[in-house]
Design a protein around this nucleic acid. Sequence first.
DNA 1: CATTTCAGCTTGTATTTACAAGTAAAATTA
DNA 2: TAATTTTACTTGTAAATACAAGCTGAAATG
Lengths: 239, 239
Amino acid sequence: MSGKKQNIPRYRQVYEILRKHITSGVYREGDMLPSENDLCQTNGITRPTVRLALDQLVKDGFIKKQQGKGSIVCAQPKGIGILSVAGTTTAIGKENLKTKILEGPVIRKWDDPFVFPLSEVEKESGCIYMERVRLVNNKPLFYDITFLPNINLPRFTSRTFENRSLFDILRKSYQVKVTGGEQRLKAIPAKGKICQHLDVKEGEPVLHLERKINTNRIDYSFYSTLFCNTTEHDLFGIF
Amino acid sequence: MSGKKQNIPRYRQVYEILRKHITSGVYREGDMLPSENDLCQTNGITRPTVRLALDQLVKDGFIKKQQGKGSIVCAQPKGIGILSVAGTTTAIGKENLKTKILEGPVIRKWDDPFVFPLSEVEKESGCIYMERVRLVNNKPLFYDITFLPNINLPRFTSRTFENRSLFDILRKSYQVKVTGGEQRLKAIPAKGKICQHLDVKEGEPVLHLERKINTNRIDYSFYSTLFCNTTEHDLFGIF
DNA sequence: CATTTCAGCTTGTATTTACAAGTAAAATTA
DNA sequence: TAATTTTACTTGTAAATACAAGCTGAAATG
């Protein structure tokens, strides 16, 4: 036997297949996807199941649907897809992205007060703290401070994060999948560490995001404070 | 008879009812919604239909679901929900929001080049141009420039927009519903008209959004350039 | 009494079936 | 030929049904 027999839903499997076909160029911008009935036959499933897969693709911006015609493949966004669900790494592609660790991961107390309300369990457990800088073409783009509740993440602080995706590590080593979250953002003048890490002048406008990121573990969320230099790249999102 | 007999899908009706119950406080943060089977009985529909309504509520951030337990009502965001689908008006509530028209709506040519690629039809038709300022508690928050393709919107330029929601007018008078869109954002230093309209100092950081907004009319999108003073309010979004 | 088992609830996934509504091209009609 | 109608496709909405999987509390067990 090859791998462990997982129990991934059929609609999820079909979603992954179609997504791969789109990102790898089997279907290109403007192309029609096979009709829902075709996809039923091809994959041996029924229409409601196919539609679950397609709904997800619509939500992620890969296709748009038109009644009476079909599913049309969309252009892939060129910006930085930080606003949609997916880590930074998948959003810009691994080629030009480097991750530098500035601090941590270390276990420490939460900031008090913290930007988002914390449960008692979270407060007691303390947090895993990490500071990173993401560079695109060797220029600093994100200055990212991550806070993870120190709950059931054995040996986390001794792992290597340099040039690795946090989301990937969480998913593959701890079965923690990101399902969504909330964010608030504003434009602020750069100062202090932000200037230093993003290589911008004092007072220069930078984007400031505060994100709460939810996972498949009920009541397990983690938090990220993010500063972004948007002079060269925009942030991109669909809604 | 009261109004015209419209043909709104059942799942959409149920969505509107539940949404109203949540926003008006019938259900409060942390409350459980009735179970899916209860909602079936109450509304005389079946589970797949109920689930369509609930899916939409999840997407909009009103509830979160947990297998084995139920649907839990979420806290309503306090920021400005500009990043999710819905106009600014519904996002902050009508109470404190005023809209001031600075210019238009007038029919004119598109900017060339335009931020988003335009189809030939859009280019030929010209655009309806409008500049507005949104004030919260009488302080300017958004400076909004709207571009609508001049296609099949009779008498649009002679309508009154002062203190009215553009999304509402489009939906009620032209049956144009917003279905989603894409946006790119960055932090920029304020200058010129932006300083003037948002009442901020030259060089002060403001948020700059470029949005393409899709509708239920196929191939009908409109565009919005938005500057936001985020010193007092953040922008809020879920993903 | 403490622990385990189980029954009854919840949401998640999936099938099958049916018809409505929108699109486009073929077939018919003037 | 040109305009109209039909037909055959597409996606959208909806019902009825079934079982899996997760949660909770009551009943049975040690």
